[in-house]
Every structure is written in C-alpha cells, then in structure tokens.
C-alpha cells in the first residue's frame, strides 16, 4: 500500500521528489527511513527512476516512451469494458458520473465536513513509526507532516502544484 501511495504522490506532484518531499506529500507521520527504503524498493522494481539531488536522490516515475500508448490503451479499454447493461463490469470504478442532485448533495457534504478535522489521529500502524519519525525528523529539516499539511480542502490545489 505504501508503495502505491508514494508512487501516486510522485505522479500527483508531476515531478521527481526527494524522500523528504515525498514524505511530506504523503501527509502523514511516517519515518523518513521507511519512506526512503520504500522509494528504493520501487526503484529496484523499476517503477521509479532516480537522479542525484543534493545529498540524496530525487525519485521520478519511470515512464517509458510508451506513456501515450498506455493512456490510449486505458481509454480504449475503459470504453470496451465499461458497464453497459449487459457488460461484466470487469472495470470497477471508484466513482461514476453524478446526477445533478448528487452534485448538490456532495458539495453540501464537503462544506459540512471540511478537511483537517480536529482530533484526527494518525492511522493504524502509524503509531509505532511516529517515534522514529520524530527522531529522524532532523534529517528532513523539521518534519511538518500530519494534520496541518493535509488540512484545508480548498488549499489542496495549491498543495499539489509543482513547487
């Protein structure tokens, strides 16, 4: 799971990230070493490329020249497998398209439950790593991870823009 999260975070950033940046982009208190070793593992598997950046590496997506091909393939596949009345739905969507009523309802919901709610603890399994995260925080230069980073539903656009 963490591998996919890191992969997605780098893809969302749209540029290579150093372990410190990647850890920050995850928005939860994880040990620096955990992030670093996961990135290294992704690199070993060929999912990420890395290039020297300062005293560390910056990890980017190992997208081959066939990126466009993948996008086209995905589109064609989505069209072919998409759930018509009698299709097998081999493709399970996270969310489908909305009706106008849904749209209003969901917008209300987002307003009623803005991001970064108070008292949101770290997720399960993170607890053990929090301590290590703090000890290794020095390398990252003051870990400002956690609620604050994730906070602000409306500021998320800014968060994801290339810095």
């Amino acid at each position: 799971m963490l591998e996919r999260e890191l992969f997605a975070a780098i893809a969302a950033a749209g540029r290579p990230l150093t372990p410190a940046e990647a850890r920050e982009a995850l928005g939860r208190p994880l040990a620096y070493t955990t992030v670093m070793s996961t990135l290294a593992r992704l690199h070993d598997k060929g999912a990420l490329t890395r290039s020297p950046a300062g005293r560390s590496f910056a990890y980017g997506l190992a997208v081959g020249p066939d990126t466009l091909d993948a996008t086209l393939t995905a589109r064609r596949m989505a069209r072919a497998l998409d759930g018509g009345a009698n299709r097998a739905e081999a493709l399970a969507r996270f969310v489908a398209d909305l009706g106008p009523d849904d749209e209003r309802l969901l917008a209300d919901l987002l307003r009623a439950h803005p991001s970064g709610g108070a008292g949101r603890g770290p997720a399960e399994a993170d607890g053990a790593e929090t301590d290590r995260a703090q000890t290794s925080g020095a390398q990252v230069g003051g870990a400002q991870v956690g609620g604050a980073q994730v906070g602000g539903a409306e500021s998320t656009g800014a968060e994801d823009q290339p810095r």
Binding site: V95, D97, L98, D102, L106, A107, R120, P122, E124
Partner: peptide, 20 residues
C-alpha cells in the same frame, strides 16, 4: 485503512465532484 470515516466520505464526494 485511513482510520477515519469522514475522510473516506470526503474522498468519495470530492472524486465524484471532480468527475462532474
């Protein structure tokens, strides 16, 4: 996994609206 039902609900709502 997220340890928070509200975050999960928000993710659904935001993804749905983004598509819309």
């Amino acid at each position: 996994h997220a340890g928070d039902r509200i975050v999960a609900a928000r993710a659904l709502a935001r993804a749905g609206l983004a598509r819309a």
